[in-house]
């Protein structure tokens, strides 16, 4: 029984192989592989891709696995290689687990762009990275933001994502450097850096523990969307909005109620929309030969102006962070 079906299976497989036909494609096809589905942050990014492709006439599709686990994107990338797409844009879930499969994609002439996050340390496995802003400056910008809210004085804490989150850790290093080196922040003391694993439950408990452990706490910086929402919620519940200022990186839709009721005065982020917009223009330009993917090269993108390719072929969509507060939050919907 076993052997018979094995033979049959092989016969079936061979007969199917001839069925694979190459599909000629007219327009450039771009696929964006998100971190995971249900992540509201990416809705706006995808919109940027879609709008740009409407203008440029490229075909765009968005796919994402159910979880942000390191390996979950691999079948999706392989499927896109099989579909013979021209460009794979990806927000990588792992800095190194995707190396093999990205390598295979590039061997087949697919342009691989890391969008919204980089595969730090494995840069040779992608063609370019499109990052929202200069990550070196995020940390000091955030310290300045919180400082301005608390008159540059008092105990502060950081509530981050996971202990190994590469972007957040880079920003935290920047925060620590700013606090140590800039005399402007001499009276601000960082009392704790805690991690909520980007889970609402853990982030909330960590934020509550901060308020309880440090009764003189003046401010919390949370450079992650789940963390800043949890911190705001905790401060609002404890009725301590006057005493403890919350800021960090969040999306306007997530933070709107806290801005409206005054729990949070201001927070920052960048435009995910522009990342998708820029990535599409960059990809189409590269494939058409109008853009050269070399460090130092420049190109024009409508609405964004002149863009420069920085070291390690990374591209920033904007120079600094955008600040959201009661005056401008209703201009944004993402």
């Amino acid at each position: 029984m076993f052997r018979k079906s094995l033979v049959f299976g092989l016969a079936l497989g061979v007969s199917m192989a001839s069925g694979a036909a190459a599909f000629a494609q007219e327009s450039l096809s771009i696929v964006f592989v998100g971190k995971n589905t249900g992540n509201p942050y990416f809705d706006s990014l995808v919109q940027g891709f879609e709008d740009a492709c409407d203008v440029l006439g490229c075909e765009f599709e968005f796919v994402a696995p159910a979880t942000a686990e390191a390996t979950s994107q691999i079948p999706f990338i392989t499927a896109q290689i099989q579909r013979r797409v021209d460009v794979i844009a990806i927000s990588p879930n792992s800095p190194d687990a995707l190396n093999q499969v990205l390598d295979r994609a590039r061997q087949r002439g697919i342009l691989v762009l890391s969008v919204n996050g980089d595969i730090t340390g494995s840069e040779e496995f992608r063609d370019a990275a499109i990052l929202p802003t200069d990550f070196e400056k995020v940390g000091s910008d955030q310290v300045e933001m919180l400082g301005s809210l608390i008159n540059y004085e008092g105990e502060i804490a950081i509530l981050s994502a996971t202990t190994e989150a590469p972007d957040q850790n880079k920003w935290i290093v920047g925060m620590n450097e700013a606090l140590e080196n800039n005399p402007k922040y001499a009276k601000m003391t960082l009392v704790a850096t805690v991690y909520g694993d980007d889970q609402p439950e853990k982030s909330t408990t960590e934020a509550e523990a901060l308020l309880s452990t440090y009764p003189n706490l003046r401010g919390i910086i949370s450079p992650t969307t789940v963390g800043i929402a949890a911190s705001a919620q905790v401060v609002q519940s404890a009725n301590k909005a006057d005493q403890v200022k919350v800021t960090g990186l969040g999306t306007p839709n997530q933070m709107r109620p806290f801005i409206k009721d005054g729990t949070v005065e201001a927070f920052q982020l960048w435009s995910p929309y522009n990342e998708g917009w820029l990535a599409s223009y960059f990809a189409v330009g590269l494939k058409a030969g109008t853009i050269v993917n070399e460090v130092g090269a420049t190109f024009e993108v409508p609405n964004l102006g002149t863009i420069t390719i920085n070291e390690l072929n990374s591209i920033n969509t904007q120079a600094g962070l955008t600040t959201f507060n009661a005056d401008n939050i209703d201009d944004f919907n993402f």
Partner: peptide
């Protein structure tokens, strides 16, 4: 009520 929002992939 407690977390103030609902996310399909986390909740």
């Amino acid at each position: 009520s407690r977390f103030g929002y609902v996310n399909p992939s986390i909740t």
